[in-house]
């Protein structure tokens, strides 16, 4: 057994394909994590159709729509940053990542105002106003806070990922022939977008 044969059988440790596979598997766990919440949502909506309808009137569709557009656009810029990296256009790629992060902040600021408005109106878990409402509406707002809250947490994690990526680009660890970490972070970001694609009609568009 020569050393070259050994090297052929055991290629160097880098395996981008394997990294992407691992990332996808991780995304499935995220998907099922939210899936559990969607099951809860589906059951309660089935049990309390009228109350969910009433409660949804409290949400502001415009804010929801703005956030949808922000996430869709950021998803596009994230995907483009990979193309830019592949083409060796590092500066452009970095710019696109910054734009993505910018949209993430638009999303979070929007969310912040939306939640503060709700809390000012006395709609928050355990509040007197909320507990006075029918059961279905309590459940609706419980799910609203948990699901959008968990989603926003994922937005924050996505931003942290991208900040790491920017640092690694600066350090030269990510470049035009080695960018799987950028790809994986973008995949994570698209997942955040995907979940919002379902959250938006389920919470904002029950008319």
């Amino acid at each position: 057994m020569s050393s070259t044969e050994y090297a052929a059988a055991y290629p160097a440790h880098r395996d981008d394909y394997g990294s992407r596979m691992g990332m996808w598997l991780f995304l499935f766990t995220e998907l099922i994590l939210f899936g559990g919440l969607f099951i809860v949502y589906a059951v309660y909506r089935y049990m309390h159709q009228q109350e969910f309808h009433m409660a949804a009137q409290e949400l502001n569709t415009t804010i929801g729509l703005t956030n949808t557009i922000a996430l869709l656009t950021s998803s596009m810029t994230a995907a483009m940053s990979i193309t830019a990296m592949q083409k060796g256009n590092v500066r452009f790629s970095k710019g696109l990542i910054w734009i993505t992060i910018g949209f993430a902040f638009v999303f979070m600021v929007n969310k912040f105002f939306e939640w503060s408005a709700k809390i000012q109106h006395g709609i928050f878990p355990g509040s007197k106003d909320l507990l006075a409402k029918p059961n279905g509406e309590i459940l609706y707002f419980g799910l609203y806070y948990v699901m959008t809250g968990l989603h926003t947490l994922h937005v924050i994690i996505g931003v942290i990922f991208f900040l790491f990526i920017l640092r690694q680009i600066k350090q030269g660890k990510i470049h035009s022939t080695r960018y799987v970490r950028l790809e994986n972070s973008a995949l994570y970001w698209h997942l955040v977008d995907l979940i919002w694609i379902f959250l938006f009609p389920l919470f904002y568009l029950i008319h």
Binding site: F28, T29, L33, G36, V40, P125, I138, L139, V146
Partner: peptide
């Protein structure tokens, strides 16, 4: 594929305990 379900379910119980969210 199955473990995340228990993760979110137990998290919901925890959230319900701490914040009083109705789930």
């Amino acid at each position: 594929l199955a473990t995340p379900i228990i993760g979110i379910t137990l998290a919901l119980v925890g959230i319900e305990r701490v914040l009083g969210v109705g789930i």
